[in-house]
Amino acid sequence: MSEKEVKNLEEIFEARIARDEKIEPKDWMPEKYRKTHIRQISQHAHSEIVGMLPEGNWISRAPSLRRKVALLAKVQDEAGHGLYLYSACETLGISRNELYEQLHSGKAKYSSIFNYPTVTWADMGAIGWLVDGAAIINQVPLCSTSYGPYARAMVRVCKEESFHQRQGFEIMLKLANGTPEQKEMAQDALNRWWWPSLMMLGPTDAESVHTEQSMKWKLKRKTNDELRQQFIDQTVPQADLLGLTIPDPDLKWNEETGHYDFGNINWDEFWQVVKGHGPCNKERMNARVGAWKRGAWVRDAAMAYAEKKEARKKVSKAS
């Protein structure tokens, strides 16, 4: 194809997206669109399956049977969501194995919030309330993103996730209304998860490299800073309801803007964690790589068995 022809196709392509048409796997797409989507969808998928680990850490210690089944079901959902997203990514011509290799080699990124440790039961509440809360803000607009398989996966994810945040908030509510020790546990969890949750919505617009292109392709509908403001505005009243204090002395309602003003985010910490130096980056990667390696003989066995069975079928048909 000549450069001119490609340019022509690109214009038609951009016009389709502008008209809100969906792009499907076999449609022509610019290489950059494919690559950007592989990167974003796989990062999203990786975040789901690495995100299983900090919560998985408390399944065996959940304090009641009711909490245990809810947490198990939630972490299981995250595996499901990872699976839906990997499947969406595979329609772009890359295999799940290749995506795993990118994750395991450190080439691919995942949400840096999962590199923080879960140290008390209240962290299960804080993660559900804050981390899932921030995730939902990010994810809901993606249900109408331009790439069909991604949009469909997100519809399913959002539908299933609706119980996740409620699960977390309920845990917080119980703790906040419990004994002084429990309330303190809840406050401590809020203190530790608040700032990472704000960071989770991504670097400030000034530093965000992909925003403009992503907006065009409907991979993003609002900027990181807008999403962050939305998250803060909706979360502050919830903290009030819990009787917990958000750990930001500069947080206050601004009558003029109709939003909360908030203090400076420690972006050095954010970049440190993104670059692999968070408290649990190593543990998380070891857990993922370890599970994959330990599972190799199992996956091979299943494949070998399937091939034998197929061969036997052929022999019995031939005779």
Binding site: L83, S87, R96, A153, R156, D300, A302
Partner: peptide, 29 residues
Amino acid sequence: KKNWPLWEIFVRSKNGLEHRHFGSLHASD
């Protein structure tokens, strides 16, 4: 070694309705 191939999954949500494409997954057979 060979990896588990990809399968497309169709689910009938209740009798009277058609099977609908739900998504995909990996399996050995």
